[in-house]
């Protein structure tokens, strides 16, 4: 099961026929396993890693350190939910260390992201402070090197 997940994590479009051959299992077993992993939400979604910059979109990504005052009974969860429901918010993590929530926001421009932080995020009740960092360049994303220059340099035939 772990091997199947690793293969799908690397390439979600790999046909079941190939997966079955690679894992030396019948196709129906692979199909059933994927179905179960989806039903259990172990496989949560199939996304595509896109180089939007290359496509021509120049979005701005901001990493924001958020400090919050935890609330009785729900701790950080209620405030986290108020934050992650916004479409602009790509990721939210509860952190140890000098701040509480790490929020990643994507917007069309610096102004729009700044506006979101000023008007939406920092005004949420319980948010005590924010500190924003804008990303300048992505070198590696989710395990993929963006501009990988390590082509196959092997000779075409060797003994």
């Amino acid at each position: 099961m772990r091997e199947l997940l690793q293969l799908l994590e690397h390439d979600a479009r790999r046909p079941v026929k190939e997966l079955a051959a690679m894992l030396n299992k019948p196709e129906f077993e692979i199909e059933e396993a994927i179905k179960k992993l989806e039903d259990d939400r172990i496989i949560m979604s199939y996304n595509t890693l896109i180089d939007w910059e290359k496509f021509g979109d120049h979005n701005v990504t901001s990493v924001i350190e958020v400090n919050v005052a935890p609330q009785r009974e729900v701790g950080f969860d209620a405030i986290a939910e108020r934050i992650y429901r916004f479409d602009e918010v790509k990721s939210v993590f509860l952190m140890s260390g000098s701040f509480d929530l790490l929020v990643i926001i994507e917007g069309q421009s610096l102004n729009k992201v700044a506006d979101f932080v000023a008007r939406r995020l920092s005004t949420i009740e319980g948010v005590t402070s924010t500190r924003s960092h804008f990303m300048l360049k992505a070198y590696k994303k989710d395990g993929t090197i963006i501009d990988d220059k390590e082509d196959d340099r092997r000779l075409v035939m060797t003994p």
Binding site: R154, L155, V156, M157, P159
Partner: peptide
């Protein structure tokens, strides 16, 4: 065969005796 293979740009090679 090597000389022919290197002249093709869309060749798929299973002829390499070293790790990829």
């Amino acid at each position: 065969f090597f000389d022919v293979a290197v002249s093709m740009d869309d060749v798929i090679t299973l002829g390499i005796g070293e790790p990829d």
